[in-house]
Amino acid sequence: MMTNKNKGTVILRKVGLYTALIIGVLLSMFPFYWMFIGATNPSGEIFSIPPNLLPGDHLVENFRNLNDNVNIIRVMINSIVIALTFTFFSVMIASAAGYAFAKYSFKGRDAIFFTLLLAIMIPYHVTLIPLFQLMADLGWLNTYRAVLLPNLAYPFAIFLMRQNMRSIPTSLLEAARVDGAGEFKIFFRVVLPTMKPALAAVAIFLFMFQWNNFLWPLVVLGDSDMYTLPVALSSLVGMSRIDYGQIMMGTTLSTLPIMIFFLLLQRQFISGILGGSVKE
C-alpha cells in the first residue's frame, strides 16, 4: 500500500517525533542525572566549574556517610510500609465512596460530594495546627496512625474513583442483583475487578502523595527511628555543614521505590485514569 513518497514522509515524521521527544526527555531527566552525578562524587564537586558531568567513585563512601547519619535502610522500610499501607486502605475507601457517589442516588449525595471537593481547595498549612492538637489529645503523637489517618479519605482519589465508576453499566449491576448478589458482593466481585486500571491510577496518585508527604510526618513523628525518607533527608540539610554527596545519595535512593511503583502500575494507569469520564 505504502508508496515511496509516503515512506519518505513517515521517516521524516519519525525523525521529527523522536527528536522532539528526546529533547523533552533530556530536559526532564537532566536534573536526575545531575543528582546521580552528585551521589557518586565527593561533596565539593557539586560546586566545580565547569560542572562535572561524569560519575565519580564516591558512591560507596557517600552511602556509608549517609548511613552513618540516617538509618537509611530502616527509613526506607518505614516509608515503603507507610506508603503501601496508606495506598491500600485509601484506595479501598476511595473506591467504596466513589462507587456510592457514582452508582447510587441517595439523600445528601451531591452535598456530601461537593463538600469533599471543597476540601481539595484548602491549603494544608492551615489545618496543621488543629490537626496536631487533635492527635495530641488522642494521644497519637509519634505513631504511624497519626501519619496515616488524616489523609486516608483523600478527596481527589474519591473524585477520580467516582468519575471512573460512572462508566460501569447499570445493567451489569442490575443483572447481579437479579442473581441475588448482595450489595457488598456486587462491589467486591463485580465492580472492583472491572476497575483495575482506575485502581492502579488512583494507587499511583496516593502512593506519590504519601511517599513525598513531608510536613505532616515531620511534626507528628518524634522518633528518628520512625522517620520517613523526606523527613530524614531534610534533617541532613542544616545550617552550616551540608554534605551534598550524602544528600544526593539519599535523594537518589528516595526516587527509586516510587519509580518502581510507577513502572509496575503504569500500564494500568494509562488506560485507567479518567477512563470512565471520557467514554460517556
Partner: peptide, 19 residues
C-alpha cells in the same frame, strides 16, 4: 534539621505544648 526543628517547635507550642 534547623528549619524542621522550628516548625515542630512552633506547631507543638501552638498546640499547647504537645510533643
Amino acid at each position: 534539621g534547623r528549619e524542621d526543628l522550628y516548625d515542630r517547635l512552633t506547631v507543638g507550642f501552638a498546640a499547647g505544648g504537645s510533643g
